[in-house]
Amino acid sequence: MAQPTVSNENSRRLLQPTTTSPTDPSGKSKLLQQLTEDGFVVIPSLLSPELLASLRDACAAVTRLGRTGEWPHVRTMGKQFPPWPRDKETIVRAGIWGVQGLMNPSLHPEHSRLFAAAYFSDAVLDPVCELLACGRGELVMELLNLLVRPAGSFELRWHRDDVPSAAPEDEERERLGLGAAEGGAGGAGGGKKKARHAQYNLALYPDDSLIVIPGSHSRVRTKLEREAGDYEEELPDMLKVHLNEGDCVFYDNNILHRGVYDESKERMTLHGSVGHVAAGTKRARNVLQHGVGEWVGECDFKELGETAEGMRKRLMELGRDAGPDVGFSLEG
């Protein structure tokens, strides 16, 4: 497959790792400013070497459980979106590209506790609060899954996580939270609503699987993007996000993006998200479709502190408010 190229002059700035930082003259943090403008931001070396090593060991163990079907909550090859099959025979035959439910207490307790400690750590929640411009009492527990080296050549089609590709322009605009100032197809953003979740990929090994179109989170698709093939190898302004081990990319999950995975390279990337309580039930489908509501009530995060338990309780409240049948965001 041809390597994606970068056609815009801003690519060097976009791929420069960013650290948490004071506000710029507009009063907005530099992290949030870049996320708002580009739809993603890279933070280097988010993890200590010690935690990185521990997480690698735990991820290797749960990946083995997933590949053998002993842990049935996985992402199977050939299927991009949930629900994925859970029967052992299908999992082993198809192979996997991800492991779900890392904080599920039914997973090996030693591992699930480590994953929870990483998820609720200051290293993750400090930039989340900065990106969501909120305090920890407003955060909602969402997801922590694992993306792994696939069993064979595998790639994801171009998509937004919560906007179907067949959505007409008016529905796309509404789902993106764009106001009237957004204008027509391909127009500049102007009415984008405040972010109510923070999604991230945290790489435990070097990872350049994620391909994005910067700025596409704040506009509807262009005519070319709408008509492009699902696996189009070249689109204007697209670029690869290069992560070194321990680096983390936070991105708007409705940025136009895809994934291209190389089965010859080791891959262990924590794929997580944290929500904001103000999102309400509009966020429920995108989170609960991954099955977290089946087991979050069994978790006990008291040893991790008040923030962790508060976030867990707010997720349970979200589930109760949304009801039992939230459906699925996308098909395929």
Rank of each mutant, 00 (worst) to 15 (best):
L139M: 07
L318I: 05
P164R: 09
L235H: 07
L131R: 04
S121L: 10
P17G: 08
Y261W: 13
R314I: 02
G272P: 04
A279V: 02
L239D: 02
G184D: 15
R312F: 00
N10V: 05
L202N: 01
P72M: 09
R64N: 09
C248S: 08
S7K: 10
A203H: 02
F250H: 03
E172S: 09
A53F: 03
F40W: 07
N201R: 08
R149K: 14
G69E: 07
H73F: 15
A94F: 01
E110L: 12
G272A: 12
A2M: 12
V292A: 05
M1V: 13
R258I: 00
G319D: 09
V274L: 05
H111F: 13
S11R: 11
A284C: 10
R285Y: 02
L65M: 12
L14F: 12
E9W: 11
T19K: 14
K28A: 14
R160P: 01
P49F: 09
S153N: 14
G78W: 07
G246F: 03
L65I: 04
L178T: 07
P164A: 11
P150Y: 06
L235K: 03
E171G: 03
V99Y: 02
D247M: 05
M141Y: 10
T36F: 01
L318P: 00
T19H: 14
M77Q: 13
R64H: 11
E306P: 00
L102I: 07
G69S: 09
N254I: 01
L47D: 04
G69Y: 06
P168N: 15
V241E: 02
I211Y: 00
H271D: 13
Q33E: 14
W295N: 03
I96V: 14
F81A: 08
E169V: 15
A203P: 04
Y231E: 14
L178C: 10
F40T: 03
H217S: 11
C299E: 04
E174A: 15
N244R: 14
V212Y: 05
P214V: 08
A195I: 03
A60V: 11
H217F: 05
L243E: 02
F40Q: 03
V41S: 06
S11H: 13
S48I: 08
K302W: 04
P4E: 10
T68L: 03
L243P: 00
G66Q: 06
H159M: 09
P109K: 11
F120W: 02
K194N: 11
L235N: 07
I96M: 08
Q34M: 12
D122V: 06
E70F: 08
L46N: 01
D122R: 15
Y119W: 08
E232V: 09
F81L: 06
W84R: 00
E331T: 15
L35A: 11
Q80M: 14
G78L: 07
P324H: 12
T90C: 05
R157V: 06
L304I: 12
M77P: 00
